[in-house]
């Protein structure tokens, strides 16, 4: 019985573990890669992991999507607040991605490369 509880504790946290894994993966890509488009993809992985972090605790097993059903007073609903916050985050995310890509395109035109190392080296900063 004790072992079963432990198993439920670990499995119940699986959303959190995967969220942490995605954060680690995103951070690793951003820090280790010098290609700027790859960095932006890593940044959006980092960002999507936050969606998971917010929406997971709002889910209630046995509940349904937070759209009120008439004549069903006992129906349970998942928490709508994280959904609203993350809805906003997604659209802002694509806006920032577009801005980042625009910067990358301009960097490529000015330096002829999107590799961070090549941009930093061989440039007289005037």
């Amino acid at each position: 019985m004790e072992g079963l509880n432990e198993l439920a504790f670990v499995l119940g946290g699986v959303n959190h573990w995967i969220t942490v894994f995605l954060i680690m993966a995103g951070l690793y890509i951003i820090v280790s890669r010098s290609n700027m488009i790859k960095k932006l993809v890593g940044l959006s992985i980092f960002q999507t992991s936050v969606y998971l972090l917010y929406v997971s605790p709002g889910k209630i097993i046995g509940g349904t999507a937070p759209i009120i059903i008439a004549n069903a007073p006992d129906q349970m609903y998942s928490n709508p607040l994280p959904h609203v916050l993350i809805l906003t985050a997604i659209v802002v995310g694509v806006a920032t991605l577009a801005l980042g890509l625009a910067l990358v395109v301009r960097i490529n035109e000015a330096y002829g490369s999107i590799e961070e190392d090549e941009v930093y080296s061989g440039e007289d900063w005037n």
Partner: peptide, 16 residues
């Protein structure tokens, strides 16, 4: 705002 911004961003990237 959302539809025109997305389309405008696509235009500027594609027209480059």
């Amino acid at each position: 705002t959302v539809s025109s911004t997305m389309l405008l961003i696509f235009y500027t990237f594609a027209g480059r």
